[in-house]
Nucleic acid binder design. Structure first.
Lengths: 203, 203
DNA sequence: GTCTATAAATTGATAGAC
DNA sequence: GTCTATCAATTTATAGAC
């Protein structure tokens, strides 16, 4: 594979990522991806055989390179549940804010192709059971109040993802269309979400 | 307009709602809508001129009839912030659970057509400012801890909507694919979300 | 109003020259 | 490897009979 190959392949992938993530799979157009990459439509099929395959490549990269590795690290390494919540919220709000179209992209994929993402997560080695056990232990030790640990986890993820997915609705309704205000709001959220949860579960 | 007209028009609308909400606008097929409605494809164009117009009708109904009125009532009438949180969570988790494809449908629309939903909300008369003021007052009175009321509102909405939007991911990861478990989890959430928030903000 | 048949348009995919 | 030109398939939309 020559250097030119790599360059083109990467250009395509980057363009495809932009278009697929913004438009969704069905509404994305191969022509637009080609235009965005600054190359010809036929080249898309030369490198990736079909729209399906191209989409799969994009999805795989988003999940396996962008989202999962860091989360894996946090969930794996952080023993203290309060610190875990903080780190998780900080990373998640940050990465999603930097890639604001990912939530829609992922939620769409979840609904169109239910098993792909969950399999990726399950195969990624992310130790969900361990994390839940860690929360359970904190409850047994009287550090946090007793509740279903999954409720806490779901709350955490919800609060990180949704405000970005719903950006275009929140912006006019809560922020008078001020992007500065909204940005400040999200920046604060990195700690706010964690504090909100800890405030709720600590004893 | 005869009775038959109404019947057919309604059949179409109902079918369109099912298909659009489940597939998204781009992936929805007029043929499938016609089949679902049990009528011919040409009739779709006879009643609604185009796919676009049909979609708009569906979206308008979902928002203006299904989502907004009840929320308006709750936000308008309920003075006590704790009760407001409870009622809001109870209704929202319930309606979304009954119509699990709505979150994706709405989020998609938010991103494709940013102003439509927010305008609908802004024009619905939902008293956002009043609600925020009510939270502010509760803070001033020392009933809840001081924070940005919008953070609380966003948390509330996030926790109601996301778990249903992400159903297909949560199901295998947190519930071993047990729909019964997941259903129980969501049923509990109607009160759990409200309690979680109140626990966090009360003094 | 409702249908069948068909046109028109869009778009993913391929052939073939360079 | 990259392009232009074209095909083939899908899908929205319309014409016209009943």
């Amino acid at each position: 594979m020559t250097e030119q190959d790599l360059k083109t392949e990467e250009k395509i992938l980057e363009a495809a990522m932009t278009v697929f993530i913004q438009k969704g799979k069905a509404a994305a157009r191969m022509q637009e991806i080609a235009d965005t990459a600054g190359i010809n439509k036929a080249l898309l099929h030369y490198y990736y055989r079909s729209k399906d395959k191209l989409y799969e490549s994009v999805f795989s990269i988003v999940i396996k390179q962008l989202l999962l590795p860091k989360i894996f690290k946090i969930l794996q390494e952080e023993e203290d549940v309060f610190a875990l919540i903080h780190q998780f919220a900080d990373f998640y709000v940050g990465v999603i804010n930097k890639n604001p179209f990912i939530p829609l992209f992922v939620i769409e994929e979840i609904n169109k192709n239910p098993n792909r993402l969950s399999n990726a997560v399950l195969n990624s080695g992310i130790p969900i059971e361990q994390v839940i056990a860690r929360f359970q232990k904190a409850m047994d030790e009287g550090k946090i109040r007793k509740t279903d640990p999954r409720q806490i986890l779901v709350n955490l993820i919800s609060m990180c993802i949704f405000p970005v997915a719903a950006r275009n609705m929140l912006l006019p309704i809560l922020f008078n269309n001020s992007k500065t205000e909204y940005k400040k709001f999200l920046e604060l959220r990195k700690t706010e979400v964690a504090e909100f949860i800890i405030q709720s579960i600590k004893i």
